[in-house]
Design a protein around this nucleic acid. Structure first.
Lengths: 197, 197
DNA sequence: TAGAGACTAGTCCAGTTTGACTACTTGGCC
DNA sequence: GGCCAAGTAGTCAAACTGGACTAGTCTCTA
């Protein structure tokens, strides 16, 4: 699951450097433990992995109060990789967790880029709906009835997502949200994302 | 992910005994590799695990043609566990894979039981929608705007699922599908599920 | 009739996830 | 001033997943 990777990189980047527990609390406060199913162990693993891959740097900090901590900071490669992950998550259907994580990190992208990725998602969802419709018109003879009806749910979900993606694209076009290339963007980090040093 | 466990137990049960490759091909033919993201390694693992847990029995079969195979058969405990998994998957929201797997194995339940579980899901989805609506009316001050809009998608998905669950419950009440307690149920295993011995 | 390609059956192990566990500090409160 | 609860920070082994890999058997077909 690279949703964990994306969120961890994102939090470190947004806070301009963070240690494991901080990432963990931040994700918890976003309710990410529920919608992205992220457990503590995975966070620490993702941080170490990212550091080993050169996406983050590690700085050991002697615990002035409490146990020793490791401070992580995003590298240039880490930022690039993260932006790529956000773009992928927006574009690709079939991975709800990545979509959720990408939306959470949406302001990492420039406005035009974000719109392009969301539009690509719209196109893919439309294509999938066409395939599904065909499949239901010419059903496979030995697919059980209840499995065919299940496709009804998938199609419904896809349609819901499609409408939502369209409206997101529209909102973005109309200037909603502070994106990476806007004044007052995430570069002016909102309070709740600031490092609680 | 216990969706793998459920599907593997289910296929073994439905075929009245199966070896790994058979389970694998069956799942493939259902398109499960895509909607449940199941890979070969996980299938063989799940089979061994289930055997170790006493949910399946293992019988080594000398390969009359081709390599040696291991035949698995469901035990009574395995059947009970599977039925419990199907009921859980129907009831509990927040796990789409389990829902998909449970629907695939729906005819394992008796009609009244299935209806009860689906109705429970309906109730839970309605409760979630209420909570979400409240959350959107009284938004947390420092939740970023784009994260609040994401909730729009979740709510939409929940509504879609709700409608679908209601209609499934209705279809079941009207006698759709051959359930476990019906004549002509899965006990009369359809051709495409029969062991290709 | 040998060799290519497809099918059958499963192993292997590196990588990832889980969640229980350790260990230390702070603050309250009796 | 001693003890408990809550908070801080992270480790660890066990379990699970992914998917490349092995290894035999048919089946054409040139």
């Amino acid at each position: 699951m690279s949703a964990t990777k994306l969120l961890v990189l994102g939090i470190v980047h947004l806070s301009g450097g963070a240690h494991g527990y901080q990432v963990r609390s931040e994700l918890q406060s976003w309710g990410a433990e529920s919608w992205a199913k992220i457990k503590p162990g995975s966070i620490y693993h993702a941080l170490k992995k990212a550091a080993a891959d050169g996406l983050l740097t590690e700085h050991a900090e002697p615990g002035n109060s409490g146990p020793e901590r490791v401070l992580y900071r995003a590298t240039a490669r880490g930022r690039d990789e993260m932006v790529e992950l956000v773009r992928d998550g927006l574009r690709r259907t079939h991975d709800p967790d990545m979509l959720n994580a990408s939306i959470a990190m949406l302001p990492m992208l420039t406005r035009t880029d974000a719109i392009a990725q969301v539009n690509e998602r719209v196109a893919r969802l439309e294509a999938e709906l066409v395939v599904q419709a065909e499949w239901r018109e010419h059903p496979n003879r030995d697919t059980p009835e209840h499995v065919r009806d299940q496709a009804e749910l998938w199609a419904g979900q896809a349609r819901t997502e499609l409408e939502w993606a369209k409206s997101l694209s529209k909102r973005l076009s109309e200037g909603a949200y502070a994106m990476a290339d806007d004044p007052g963007s995430w570069r002016t980090v909102p309070d709740h994302l600031k490092m609680r040093a």
